[in-house]
Simulated scan of single mutants.
Amino acid sequence: MEDTSLVFNKNINRRRNTKKKTSVWRTIVKQKQLIFMSVPILIYIFIFNYLPLSGWVMAFQKYRPGPGKSIFNQKWVGFENFKFLFMDEGFLNVLRNTVCMSLINIVLSFITAIGLALLLNEVKNLAFKKTVQTISYLPYFISWVIACSIIAQSLSAENGIINILLMKLHLIEKPIMWLGEGKYFWGIFGLGNVWKNVGFNAIIYLGAMTSIDPNLYEAADIDGAGRFRKMWNITLPSIKSTIVVLLIMNIASVLNAGFEFQYLLGNGLNIEWSETIDVFTLRYGIRQGNFSLATAAGMFKTIVSIILLFLANWICKLLGEERLI
C-alpha cells in the first residue's frame, strides 16, 4: 500500500509540473507580441548596462592605457586598490559625505513630497490646485547646471537674495559666504533638492491617492472625522504600499547622493563636506588617470547598493509590507 501511495504521489507531482510548464509556455505564446517588443530594450540594457561590467577587472589591476595594451594585458594587483581605498582617510570622508547627504535627501524628500501631496489632495479648487502643481514641479525640468547657477546667485555674499533678506530682517549683521563654509553645504544640498524635485515626487503620491475609494471619506464624514483625521486614518494607510516601494528604491541608492550638485557647487573651501563618491571617482579616474582606483570605488558603490536593495526588500517581507522584488 505504501509503495502504491508513493507512486500515486509521484504521478500527481509530475502532472502538476507538466501543467505548470504548459501554462508558462501558453502565457509566452499569448504574449509573444509584448516579448518581441521588449527584445530591443533588453538588448539596449545588455549593451549599455551589463556589457561594460567587464571593465570591473580594472579594479584588480594596475591599469595603464597605452598602444597595444588591452584591458586583459595589464599587471594584476589583486585587492590592493581596495585596501588603499579603505585605508585612505580622504575616501572615508567622501563616504561619510555621500551617506549623510543621501540620508538628508531621503528624509526631506519623503516628508515634503508626501506633505505636499496630502495638502493638494485636500484642495477643492481645481484651478488653484493645478496652478500650485505646475509651479511646484516646473523646477524639476530645469537642468542642474541652471539650477545650481540660480542657487549660487541666490546665496552670493555680494548681492544674493538670501543675504539681503536676512540682513533686512536683522537676523545677520553681515553677509555669509554660504558656499565658502563647508558646514552649510549639507543643508543647502537638502533644500536645493527639495526645491527642484518636491513637485515631481508629489505627483507619484497624488496618483496613488486617486485610487482610494471615495466611500471611505464619505463614511468618515458621517462619523464626524476632520481633514487631518482622514489624512491620518485613510489617505496615508491607503498609499502605504507606494511609500514602502519608493523607500526600498531610495535605500538601495543611499550611496548615490548625486553628482551635478556637488560638482557644480563644490569648491576648495567646502570640498571636505561636498565631495561624494561620484566626484571622487571623476577626480581620480579622469583628472589623475588612476582608472583602477576609480573603478574600485565605483564597484564598491554598486555592490553596496545591491546588498541594501535586497536587505530592505527582505525586511519588508518579514514585516509583511509591499516588496519590490
Score class of each variant (00 low, 15 high):
residue 18 T to N: 10
residue 78 G to N: 11
residue 309 L to G: 01
residue 18 T to H: 05
residue 188 I to M: 04
residue 206 L to Q: 05
residue 246 L to D: 02
residue 54 S to Q: 12
residue 289 G to K: 06
residue 314 W to A: 14
residue 232 W to R: 15
residue 12 I to F: 06
residue 215 N to C: 07
residue 238 S to T: 02
residue 5 S to M: 11
residue 65 P to H: 10
residue 112 T to S: 13
residue 304 V to A: 08
residue 21 K to F: 09
residue 312 A to F: 03
residue 46 F to W: 11
residue 72 F to W: 15
residue 125 N to A: 12
residue 278 D to I: 06
residue 109 S to A: 13
residue 131 T to G: 09
residue 134 T to M: 14
residue 273 W to R: 02
residue 274 S to A: 15
residue 250 N to A: 14
residue 1 M to F: 01
residue 238 S to C: 11
residue 7 V to L: 14
residue 92 L to W: 11
residue 66 G to R: 11
residue 234 I to A: 05
residue 253 S to Q: 10
residue 8 F to Q: 12
residue 178 W to S: 05
residue 310 F to S: 07
residue 70 S to L: 12
residue 89 E to M: 12
residue 264 L to G: 04
residue 86 F to T: 06
residue 298 G to I: 02
residue 224 G to F: 10
residue 191 L to Q: 00
residue 37 M to H: 03
residue 226 G to A: 03
residue 163 N to S: 08
residue 144 W to C: 05
residue 185 F to E: 04
residue 33 Q to N: 14
residue 293 L to P: 00
residue 3 D to V: 03
residue 314 W to P: 00
residue 113 A to Y: 00
residue 298 G to W: 01
residue 129 K to H: 13
residue 309 L to D: 04
residue 165 L to T: 09
residue 228 F to A: 07
residue 144 W to G: 05
residue 143 S to P: 02
residue 280 F to Q: 02
residue 299 M to A: 14
residue 113 A to P: 00
residue 49 N to T: 06
residue 173 E to W: 05
residue 89 E to A: 12
residue 266 G to P: 00
residue 312 A to H: 02
residue 14 R to F: 12
residue 80 E to R: 10
residue 118 L to H: 01
residue 208 A to V: 03
residue 53 L to G: 07
residue 242 T to N: 05
residue 58 M to C: 02
residue 8 F to H: 06
residue 313 N to Q: 10
residue 42 L to N: 07
residue 165 L to W: 10
residue 267 N to L: 06
residue 200 F to D: 06
residue 256 N to G: 06
residue 1 M to I: 01
residue 193 N to F: 03
residue 111 I to A: 15
residue 195 W to C: 09
residue 320 G to C: 04
residue 322 E to F: 00
residue 142 I to H: 01
residue 20 K to I: 13
residue 16 R to K: 13
residue 178 W to H: 08
residue 94 V to S: 06
residue 97 N to D: 11
residue 86 F to N: 08
residue 88 D to T: 03
residue 157 A to V: 08
residue 317 K to G: 10
residue 153 Q to E: 11
residue 191 L to A: 11
residue 64 R to Y: 11
residue 315 I to M: 13
residue 135 I to P: 00
residue 288 Q to C: 04
residue 129 K to E: 14
residue 125 N to R: 09
residue 213 D to A: 10
residue 20 K to F: 12
residue 190 G to S: 12
residue 117 A to P: 01
residue 236 L to E: 09
residue 69 K to H: 13
residue 2 E to G: 15
residue 43 I to Y: 09
residue 27 T to D: 14
residue 145 V to P: 01
residue 237 P to C: 10
residue 3 D to W: 02
residue 154 S to W: 08
residue 186 W to I: 01
residue 305 S to A: 15
residue 251 I to E: 09
residue 196 K to N: 02
residue 53 L to D: 10
residue 81 N to C: 05
residue 141 F to H: 06
residue 156 S to V: 03
residue 82 F to I: 09
